[in-house]
Design a protein around this nucleic acid. Structure first.
Length: 305
DNA sequence: CGTCTTTGACCGGCGC
DNA sequence: GCGCCGGTCAAAGACG
Protein backbone atom coordinates (compact mmCIF):
# COMPACT_ATOMS: atom_id res chain seq x y z
CA UNK A 1 0.00 0.00 0.00
CA UNK A 2 2.77 2.26 -0.74
CA UNK A 3 3.14 2.25 -4.46
CA UNK A 4 -0.02 4.10 -5.09
CA UNK A 5 -0.74 7.71 -4.60
CA UNK A 6 -1.53 8.09 -1.00
CA UNK A 7 -4.07 10.71 -1.48
CA UNK A 8 -6.30 11.85 -4.19
CA UNK A 9 -7.90 15.16 -4.33
CA UNK A 10 -10.81 15.62 -6.52
CA UNK A 11 -10.76 19.05 -7.92
CA UNK A 12 -13.77 20.17 -9.76
CA UNK A 13 -13.41 23.15 -11.94
CA UNK A 14 -16.80 24.22 -13.17
CA UNK A 15 -15.23 26.27 -15.86
CA UNK A 16 -13.30 23.43 -17.34
CA UNK A 17 -15.19 20.35 -18.09
CA UNK A 18 -12.57 18.08 -16.72
CA UNK A 19 -12.01 16.48 -13.43
CA UNK A 20 -8.61 15.86 -12.16
CA UNK A 21 -7.07 13.88 -9.44
CA UNK A 22 -4.11 15.54 -7.97
CA UNK A 23 -1.39 13.36 -6.78
CA UNK A 24 0.09 14.86 -3.68
CA UNK A 25 3.17 12.82 -4.13
CA UNK A 26 4.19 15.03 -6.90
CA UNK A 27 6.07 18.05 -5.80
CA UNK A 28 5.46 19.83 -9.01
CA UNK A 29 2.88 22.41 -9.52
CA UNK A 30 -0.10 20.54 -10.77
CA UNK A 31 -1.53 23.38 -12.63
CA UNK A 32 1.72 24.13 -14.34
CA UNK A 33 2.40 20.56 -15.19
CA UNK A 34 -0.70 18.83 -16.43
CA UNK A 35 1.14 15.59 -16.70
CA UNK A 36 1.56 15.46 -12.99
CA UNK A 37 -2.05 14.68 -12.38
CA UNK A 38 -4.19 12.09 -13.88
CA UNK A 39 -7.56 12.58 -15.21
CA UNK A 40 -10.56 11.17 -13.55
CA UNK A 41 -10.84 8.80 -16.43
CA UNK A 42 -7.38 7.51 -15.87
CA UNK A 43 -7.96 7.15 -12.23
CA UNK A 44 -11.11 5.17 -12.53
CA UNK A 45 -10.02 3.15 -15.45
CA UNK A 46 -6.67 2.57 -13.95
CA UNK A 47 -8.01 0.05 -11.59
CA UNK A 48 -11.38 -0.10 -13.19
CA UNK A 49 -13.25 -1.04 -10.13
CA UNK A 50 -15.46 0.46 -7.60
CA UNK A 51 -12.59 0.82 -5.24
CA UNK A 52 -11.21 3.63 -7.24
CA UNK A 53 -14.38 5.52 -7.14
CA UNK A 54 -15.00 4.82 -3.58
CA UNK A 55 -11.51 5.72 -2.67
CA UNK A 56 -11.79 8.90 -4.56
CA UNK A 57 -14.68 9.80 -2.38
CA UNK A 58 -13.20 8.42 0.71
CA UNK A 59 -15.71 5.72 1.06
CA UNK A 60 -13.89 2.53 0.76
CA UNK A 61 -12.76 0.58 3.75
CA UNK A 62 -10.21 -1.19 1.69
CA UNK A 63 -8.61 1.60 -0.11
CA UNK A 64 -4.99 2.45 0.24
CA UNK A 65 -4.18 4.73 3.08
CA UNK A 66 -3.23 8.29 2.56
CA UNK A 67 -1.16 10.54 4.58
CA UNK A 68 -0.52 13.77 2.92
CA UNK A 69 -1.60 17.18 3.79
CA UNK A 70 -4.65 18.13 1.95
CA UNK A 71 -4.48 21.78 2.35
CA UNK A 72 -1.04 22.75 1.15
CA UNK A 73 -1.58 20.32 -1.64
CA UNK A 74 -4.70 21.99 -2.71
CA UNK A 75 -3.27 25.34 -2.47
CA UNK A 76 -0.10 24.45 -4.18
CA UNK A 77 -2.05 24.08 -7.32
CA UNK A 78 -2.19 27.27 -9.23
CA UNK A 79 -5.53 28.86 -8.67
CA UNK A 80 -7.22 25.99 -6.94
CA UNK A 81 -10.54 27.64 -6.77
CA UNK A 82 -12.36 29.21 -9.56
CA UNK A 83 -13.72 32.66 -9.10
CA UNK A 84 -17.27 31.79 -8.39
CA UNK A 85 -17.63 28.40 -6.98
CA UNK A 86 -16.00 25.07 -7.03
CA UNK A 87 -15.75 22.06 -4.89
CA UNK A 88 -12.82 19.95 -4.07
CA UNK A 89 -13.45 16.54 -2.81
CA UNK A 90 -10.57 15.19 -0.93
CA UNK A 91 -10.37 11.61 -0.07
CA UNK A 92 -8.62 9.80 2.61
CA UNK A 93 -9.34 6.69 4.49
CA UNK A 94 -8.31 4.27 7.07
CA UNK A 95 -4.85 5.20 8.16
CA UNK A 96 -4.93 8.21 5.98
CA UNK A 97 -4.43 11.69 7.15
CA UNK A 98 -4.24 15.05 5.59
CA UNK A 99 -2.07 16.48 8.21
CA UNK A 100 1.14 14.69 7.53
CA UNK A 101 0.98 12.97 10.84
CA UNK A 102 -1.10 10.03 10.01
CA UNK A 103 -0.03 7.56 12.57
CA UNK A 104 -0.28 10.02 15.32
CA UNK A 105 -3.69 11.05 14.30
CA UNK A 106 -4.80 7.53 13.94
CA UNK A 107 -4.02 6.87 17.50
CA UNK A 108 -5.62 10.05 18.56
CA UNK A 109 -8.75 9.55 16.68
CA UNK A 110 -9.10 6.00 17.66
CA UNK A 111 -8.73 7.10 21.18
CA UNK A 112 -11.20 9.83 20.65
CA UNK A 113 -13.68 7.45 19.23
CA UNK A 114 -13.44 5.31 22.28
CA UNK A 115 -13.73 8.22 24.59
CA UNK A 116 -16.73 9.50 22.85
CA UNK A 117 -18.60 6.69 24.39
CA UNK A 118 -16.95 6.24 27.67
CA UNK A 119 -15.44 9.63 28.18
CA UNK A 120 -12.51 8.08 29.89
CA UNK A 121 -9.48 10.08 30.64
CA UNK A 122 -7.11 10.81 27.86
CA UNK A 123 -4.16 10.23 30.08
CA UNK A 124 -5.07 6.70 30.86
CA UNK A 125 -5.36 5.64 27.29
CA UNK A 126 -1.71 5.81 26.65
CA UNK A 127 -1.59 2.09 26.36
CA UNK A 128 -2.07 2.03 22.66
CA UNK A 129 -1.32 -1.01 20.73
CA UNK A 130 1.58 -0.24 18.62
CA UNK A 131 1.38 -2.88 15.99
CA UNK A 132 -2.28 -2.45 15.50
CA UNK A 133 -3.27 -0.04 12.92
CA UNK A 134 -6.31 1.83 13.83
CA UNK A 135 -8.92 1.97 11.22
CA UNK A 136 -9.67 5.42 10.12
CA UNK A 137 -13.08 6.77 9.73
CA UNK A 138 -14.00 7.55 6.17
CA UNK A 139 -13.53 11.12 5.34
CA UNK A 140 -15.12 13.46 2.97
CA UNK A 141 -13.72 16.85 2.27
CA UNK A 142 -14.76 19.62 0.06
CA UNK A 143 -14.18 23.27 -0.50
CA UNK A 144 -16.91 25.80 -0.69
CA UNK A 145 -17.21 29.46 -1.18
CA UNK A 146 -18.64 30.94 1.91
CA UNK A 147 -18.21 33.85 4.19
CA UNK A 148 -19.21 31.73 7.12
CA UNK A 149 -16.86 29.14 8.48
CA UNK A 150 -19.21 26.72 10.06
CA UNK A 151 -21.90 25.86 7.58
CA UNK A 152 -25.13 24.24 8.51
CA UNK A 153 -25.43 20.78 7.09
CA UNK A 154 -28.44 19.51 8.93
CA UNK A 155 -26.59 17.97 11.83
CA UNK A 156 -25.79 19.39 15.18
CA UNK A 157 -22.19 19.98 15.97
CA UNK A 158 -20.31 20.94 19.05
CA UNK A 159 -17.10 22.76 18.72
CA UNK A 160 -14.43 21.20 20.83
CA UNK A 161 -11.33 22.90 19.68
CA UNK A 162 -9.70 25.48 17.58
CA UNK A 163 -6.12 25.59 16.55
CA UNK A 164 -3.95 27.87 14.60
CA UNK A 165 -2.74 26.19 11.48
CA UNK A 166 0.78 26.39 10.30
CA UNK A 167 1.24 28.39 7.15
CA UNK A 168 -2.20 29.80 7.46
CA UNK A 169 -3.48 32.89 9.22
CA UNK A 170 -6.83 31.25 9.69
CA UNK A 171 -7.55 28.88 12.54
CA UNK A 172 -8.94 25.42 12.12
CA UNK A 173 -12.03 24.53 14.07
CA UNK A 174 -12.91 21.07 15.28
CA UNK A 175 -16.48 19.94 15.61
CA UNK A 176 -18.06 16.79 16.86
CA UNK A 177 -21.53 15.54 16.20
CA UNK A 178 -23.58 16.06 19.30
CA UNK A 179 -25.70 13.00 18.79
CA UNK A 180 -24.93 10.32 21.31
CA UNK A 181 -22.74 7.51 20.10
CA UNK A 182 -22.10 9.32 16.89
CA UNK A 183 -18.40 9.82 16.46
CA UNK A 184 -18.49 11.89 13.36
CA UNK A 185 -16.22 14.87 13.40
CA UNK A 186 -15.55 17.63 11.09
CA UNK A 187 -12.87 20.18 10.64
CA UNK A 188 -13.44 23.55 9.21
CA UNK A 189 -10.74 25.83 8.03
CA UNK A 190 -10.41 28.67 5.65
CA UNK A 191 -8.06 28.56 2.78
CA UNK A 192 -5.31 31.04 3.28
CA UNK A 193 -4.83 31.40 -0.40
CA UNK A 194 -8.44 32.04 -1.08
CA UNK A 195 -9.99 33.36 2.11
CA UNK A 196 -13.41 33.15 0.59
CA UNK A 197 -13.07 29.40 0.45
CA UNK A 198 -13.88 27.17 3.37
CA UNK A 199 -12.43 23.69 3.57
CA UNK A 200 -14.70 21.31 5.40
CA UNK A 201 -13.63 17.81 6.21
CA UNK A 202 -16.10 15.29 7.52
CA UNK A 203 -14.76 12.28 9.27
CA UNK A 204 -16.81 9.23 9.91
CA UNK A 205 -20.33 8.35 9.06
CA UNK A 206 -23.37 9.36 10.98
CA UNK A 207 -25.10 6.42 12.58
CA UNK A 208 -28.32 8.31 12.83
CA UNK A 209 -30.62 10.38 10.75
CA UNK A 210 -30.84 14.08 10.66
CA UNK A 211 -31.88 15.43 14.00
CA UNK A 212 -35.51 16.24 14.11
CA UNK A 213 -34.91 19.23 16.25
CA UNK A 214 -32.48 21.56 14.72
CA UNK A 215 -31.48 25.00 15.51
CA UNK A 216 -33.40 27.48 13.52
CA UNK A 217 -35.19 25.74 10.77
CA UNK A 218 -32.36 23.89 9.23
CA UNK A 219 -34.30 20.72 8.82
CA UNK A 220 -36.98 22.47 6.89
CA UNK A 221 -34.49 24.28 4.80
CA UNK A 222 -32.62 21.10 4.26
CA UNK A 223 -35.63 19.36 2.91
CA UNK A 224 -36.47 22.32 0.86
CA UNK A 225 -33.04 22.32 -0.64
CA UNK A 226 -33.43 18.77 -1.75
CA UNK A 227 -36.34 19.76 -3.81
CA UNK A 228 -34.93 22.99 -4.98
CA UNK A 229 -31.20 22.67 -5.18
CA UNK A 230 -29.50 25.84 -5.99
CA UNK A 231 -32.24 27.89 -4.57
CA UNK A 232 -31.28 28.88 -1.17
CA UNK A 233 -32.32 31.81 0.84
CA UNK A 234 -33.39 32.29 4.34
CA UNK A 235 -32.23 33.15 7.78
CA UNK A 236 -29.50 30.60 7.77
CA UNK A 237 -28.36 31.20 4.28
CA UNK A 238 -28.26 34.88 3.77
CA UNK A 239 -26.41 35.15 0.56
CA UNK A 240 -25.53 33.50 -2.65
CA UNK A 241 -22.09 32.58 -1.51
CA UNK A 242 -23.57 29.50 -0.02
CA UNK A 243 -24.15 28.09 -3.39
CA UNK A 244 -21.61 25.55 -4.34
CA UNK A 245 -21.31 23.24 -7.23
CA UNK A 246 -21.32 19.54 -7.18
CA UNK A 247 -18.91 17.51 -9.20
CA UNK A 248 -20.67 15.94 -12.10
CA UNK A 249 -21.67 12.71 -10.54
CA UNK A 250 -23.04 11.20 -13.67
CA UNK A 251 -19.60 11.53 -15.05
CA UNK A 252 -18.58 9.06 -12.46
CA UNK A 253 -21.43 6.76 -13.11
CA UNK A 254 -20.54 6.52 -16.73
CA UNK A 255 -17.29 4.91 -15.89
CA UNK A 256 -18.91 2.35 -13.76
CA UNK A 257 -21.60 1.37 -16.13
CA UNK A 258 -19.33 0.63 -19.01
CA UNK A 259 -17.00 -2.14 -18.22
CA UNK A 260 -17.57 -3.30 -14.74
CA UNK A 261 -20.76 -5.08 -14.16
CA UNK A 262 -20.16 -5.72 -10.47
CA UNK A 263 -20.13 -2.02 -9.85
CA UNK A 264 -23.09 -1.10 -11.89
CA UNK A 265 -25.52 -1.47 -9.07
CA UNK A 266 -23.55 0.91 -6.98
CA UNK A 267 -23.56 3.46 -9.68
CA UNK A 268 -27.20 2.89 -10.24
CA UNK A 269 -27.87 3.47 -6.63
CA UNK A 270 -25.81 6.55 -6.61
CA UNK A 271 -27.54 7.77 -9.65
CA UNK A 272 -30.85 6.95 -8.12
CA UNK A 273 -29.88 8.97 -5.12
CA UNK A 274 -29.01 11.81 -7.35
CA UNK A 275 -32.30 11.48 -9.10
CA UNK A 276 -34.03 11.46 -5.79
CA UNK A 277 -32.31 14.63 -4.97
CA UNK A 278 -33.28 16.04 -8.29
CA UNK A 279 -29.71 16.89 -9.02
CA UNK A 280 -28.12 17.22 -12.36
CA UNK A 281 -24.62 17.59 -13.56
CA UNK A 282 -23.19 20.92 -12.61
CA UNK A 283 -26.32 21.69 -10.77
CA UNK A 284 -25.86 23.87 -7.84
CA UNK A 285 -26.38 22.50 -4.44
CA UNK A 286 -26.58 24.02 -1.12
CA UNK A 287 -24.13 23.07 1.47
CA UNK A 288 -26.46 20.96 3.46
CA UNK A 289 -26.69 18.65 0.53
CA UNK A 290 -23.11 17.78 1.09
CA UNK A 291 -24.00 16.70 4.51
CA UNK A 292 -26.57 14.47 3.00
CA UNK A 293 -24.21 13.21 0.39
CA UNK A 294 -21.70 12.44 3.01
CA UNK A 295 -24.38 10.56 4.81
CA UNK A 296 -25.91 8.55 2.05
CA UNK A 297 -23.00 7.63 -0.13
CA UNK A 298 -21.10 5.68 2.48
CA UNK A 299 -24.24 3.83 3.34
CA UNK A 300 -24.67 2.88 -0.25
CA UNK A 301 -21.16 1.64 -0.45
CA UNK A 302 -21.58 -0.29 2.74
CA UNK A 303 -24.50 -2.12 1.31
CA UNK A 304 -22.21 -3.55 -1.29
CA UNK A 305 -19.55 -4.79 0.98
C1' DC B 1 -30.40 25.51 33.64
C1' DG B 2 -28.89 23.35 29.58
C1' DT B 3 -26.23 24.03 25.58
C1' DC B 4 -22.58 25.81 23.21
C1' DT B 5 -18.19 28.44 22.51
C1' DT B 6 -13.75 29.91 23.94
C1' DT B 7 -9.18 29.02 25.11
C1' DG B 8 -5.11 27.48 27.47
C1' DA B 9 -3.09 23.20 28.60
C1' DC B 10 -2.00 18.73 27.51
C1' DC B 11 -0.80 14.63 24.69
C1' DG B 12 1.72 12.08 21.42
C1' DG B 13 4.08 11.58 16.95
C1' DC B 14 7.68 13.21 14.16
C1' DG B 15 11.93 15.38 12.62
C1' DC B 16 16.27 17.23 13.72
C1' DG C 1 16.27 14.99 24.05
C1' DC C 2 13.97 18.79 22.43
C1' DG C 3 10.89 21.55 19.90
C1' DC C 4 7.21 21.70 16.65
C1' DC C 5 2.72 20.64 15.40
C1' DG C 6 -1.99 18.76 15.00
C1' DG C 7 -5.54 17.07 17.72
C1' DT C 8 -8.10 16.85 22.04
C1' DC C 9 -9.58 17.94 26.69
C1' DA C 10 -11.95 20.47 30.03
C1' DA C 11 -12.79 24.52 32.84
C1' DA C 12 -14.87 28.83 32.50
C1' DG C 13 -17.86 31.87 30.54
C1' DA C 14 -21.64 33.34 27.34
C1' DC C 15 -26.12 32.84 25.80
C1' DG C 16 -31.04 31.98 25.34
Amino acid sequence: MSDQPRDLVYYHDPFHDQQRFFSPNSSTNMAADPSSYMSFTDCVHGSSDYGSLASAFDLSPFQQPLSTDQKPKLESADPPVTPNSSVVLSSSTEAGDDEANNSKKSDKQAKGAEEDVGESSKKVSKAKKKGEKKEKEPRFAFMTKSEIDHLEDGYRWRKYGQKAVKNSPYPRSYYRCTTQKCTVKKRVERSFQDPSTVITTYEGTHNHHLPSTLRGNVAGMFQHSMLNPGHMAGPGFPNQDFLVQMPPMNHIYNYGSGSNAPNSSIFQQLQQQQNNLNLNQHQQLQLSDYGLLQDIVPSIIKNHE
